[in-house]
């Protein structure tokens, strides 16, 4: 009955919330700093959500709470109805800092996550090569990431996370440390992966262009205390993903949304400057 209902809901394109955050507060330093003030967000299945906003507005804190790496001061965050109390491989995470392990070859890195899940060795090895091929690192499968470029290191971590097949993928400014060209390549790779691997994704980013390119939905955070200022469905894409970024830029509605987001960003930055 339950399953049938779920399928029916998916069929009718009413997305089911996978992650539900309700009335989440996060305070640091015994209440001295309120990073999140009464934030409620539902993340729907297979939707790509971008958390956008100026620095220090609780975007990353919210992401880390969803990951289970931090606990809310008040409120509840749940996944498929169960309260999140700690990290889980169901919610894979990609960090801004490179987390490919330098002591393991690219192949062993990708295998490591699967090993933790108890995937048998043969299956693990085959699967690792498949994911390395997907992120175009099959040629350096047996090399250590120490000599890799930033983009390659990040692709190893991405392959490792995807190989665990998490239903939710959390990304904390995953391309923030990369140069413009590599960031662009990684964004297009993400689009390709999203087409292949159906996942619920949340990405924290400062990059408005990146948010519009990747996301179906943009949640804009305002500052001090961090709360949701705007929750925007990227309507003009009409659910399409664009393998080439320049094709998106030509879409009607793109510029308007970008202008709107930049205006909000300016508003927030000026408010923060006035408050200081």
């Amino acid at each position: 009955m339950m399953v049938a209902e779920m399928n029916a809901m998916q069929m009718s394109k009413i997305a089911v919330p996978v992650i539900q955050a309700s009335r989440v507060w996060k305070q640091f330093g015994n209440g001295a700093v309120t990073a999140l003030k009464d934030v409620s967000i539902d993340l729907r299945e297979n939707e790509f959500t971008a958390f956008v906003g100026p620095s220090g507005c609780g975007k990353t804190t919210m992401l880390r709470i969803i990951a289970g790496l931090e606990h809310p001061t008040r409120g509840r965050v749940s996944m498929n109805g169960a309260t999140i109390t700690g990290p889980s491989p169901e919610r894979g995470m990609l960090f801004q800092a490179y987390t490919s392990f330098p002591w393991l070859t690219a192949r062993r890195n990708v295998e490591y996550g699967m090993k933790l899940l108890g995937v048998p060795k043969a299956e693990r090895e085959a699967s690792a090569m498949e994911f390395l091929r997907l992120v175009r690192l099959e040629k350096v499968a047996d090399k250590y990431p120490g000599g890799f470029s930033g983009g390659m290191k990040q692709r190893v971590a991405l392959a490792r996370t995807l190989a665990q097949n998490p239903s939710v993928l959390l990304m904390d400014e995953p391309f923030g440390a990369l140069d413009a060209q590599v960031r662009w390549e990684m964004q297009e790779l993400m689009i390709e992966l999203m087409e292949r691997e159906r996942k619920t994704v949340v990405a924290v980013t400062h990059d408005i262009e990146e948010a519009i390119y990747l996301a179906d939905r943009i949640v804009f955070f305002s500052c001090q205390p961090g709360r949701v200022k705007a929750d925007i469905q990227v309507e003009f894409k009409r659910g399409r993903r664009f393998p080439k970024k320049e094709d998106l830029l030509a879409q009607p509605g793109y510029t308007e949304l970008e202008q709107h987001l930049f205006a909000m960003m300016r508003e927030e930055i000026q408010a923060a400057a006035a408050a200081a």
Binding site: A67, G68, L69, G86, P87, S88, P89, R91, G92, M93, F95, A97, Y98, T99, F101, Y112, G113, L116, L117, A157, R160, T161, Q164, L170
Partner: peptide
């Protein structure tokens, strides 16, 4: 991040 990457992978 190394430690947190491990924890989020279920280590």
């Amino acid at each position: 991040e190394f430690i947190e990457a491990g924890l989020t992978m279920g280590a």
